[in-house]
């Protein structure tokens, strides 16, 4: 078990190295010049700027320095925010993105399980049809449309109420978090509802439920102890991959709701060719996802005896 963990960890580190290398060379292949600005500068000033960012050295040496710095967890200084270290930027903004992501996934899982169970109970009746129609909408409408509509409806609701129920944009308090995370979780919630519904129905037809009923167990107990518990398993399994989808899907929600998250920052950095921030963010996200997968795998191994870890 321990050996397995160590092995996966080493694999993870190699993967992160690969991501870092791919990012470095992709970034240096990008045309354009991060040091350029609105006003043209003298060649002497330019040389000084290049020296400040180490861009005057040969590529191989830059790569080596980059790897060395990264190994010690230093991503350098931002090109646009010249006083800020990329580490600080990532730390400050990732906190926000992570909050948004966690909430969204919790909303999605919670809603998905609840609606899925309800639709299964009301199969082919009105609640099922209505919820499944909404689910289809949730799966097929692009996220940015939801985000824009979400913000618009918040404005209208506040207007109608005469006070601010939910803020239309910004970040910091509980009220700020609710609408964006629901919008972000919507697609996943729809997907999970479908999954939960079919999983519930499948379990309902399985032998052990039949046995339980034959034994004369109370309906609520069957539902709670057997059906729900087993139906949730496949939902939990897909939560892992959903985390990745949600962290990156956060871009749109962060842009629309003016949330100071890492996704929005990354898009801005790309538009500004801010090399260090782009590289730092990509490597950080890559490493984050890689290690999340490892952690999830290891936890599965611990929790579910059927999963064998080699």
């Amino acid at each position: 078990m321990f050996l397995y963990g160590v092995k996966r960890l080493i694999q993870g580190i190699v993967t992160v190295w690969f991501i870092a290398t791919a990012t470095f060379f992709a970034m240096h292949g990008v045309p354009g010049d991060p040091l350029m600005n609105d006003k043209a500068v003298q060649p002497e000033i330019r040389a000084n700027l290049e020296a400040r960012y180490g861009l005057d050295k040969p590529l191989a040496q830059q790569y080596w320095i980059y790897l060395k710095n990264m190994a010690s967890g230093d991503f350098g200084i931002s090109f646009t925010q010249q006083n800020r270290e990329v580490n600080d930027i990532i730390r400050e903004h990732f906190k926000v993105s992570a909050t948004l992501g966690i909430l969204a996934i919790v909303f999605a899982a919670f809603g998905g399980i609840l609606w899925g169970a309800l639709t299964a109970l009301y199969r082919n009746r009105m609640p099922d049809i209505v919820i499944m129609f909404l689910v289809i909408l949730g799966i097929s409408v692009p996220g940015f449309v939801f985000a824009a509509l979400g913000q618009l409806s918040v404005v209208e609701i506040n207007d109608w109420l005469g006070f601010t129920l939910f803020p239309v944009a910004g970040w910091g308090t509980v009220q700020h978090m609710i609408v964006p995370s629901m919008v972000l979780g919507l697609g996943t919630m729809a997907f999970l509802t479908r999954l939960m519904r079919s999983s519930m129905l499948e379990i309902a037809n399985s032998d052990f439920i039949r046995t339980a009923r034959a034994k004369g167990l109370p309906v609520t107990r069957i539902l709670r102890k057997h059906q729900l518990r087993n139906a949730i398993l496949p939902v939990i399994t897909v939560l892992g991959p959903s985390i990745a989808a949600i962290t990156t899907g956060g871009f749109v929600v962060e842009l629309v709701f003016a949330i100071p998250g890492l996704g929005r920052y990354f898009v801005q950095a790309v538009q500004q060719s801010d090399y260090t921030v782009i590289m730092g963010t990509t490597v950080f996200y890559g490493a984050f996802l890689v290690f999340m997968v490892i952690v999830v795998d290891v936890i599965y191994g611990l929790v579910d005896p059927r999963v064998r870890l080699e």
């Binding site: 993967t15 991501i19 992709a26 899907g249 871009f251 898009v267 890559g286 890689v290």
Partner: peptide, 21 residues
């Protein structure tokens, strides 16, 4: 293949989109 899977998809989509100018 595992390495490539590990690349953050949207981030790299954006990166490659500007790389292939």
């Amino acid at each position: 293949a595992d390495f490539v899977v590990a690349l953050p998809f949207l981030l790299f989509m954006i990166l490659l989109r500007i790389l292939f100018n």
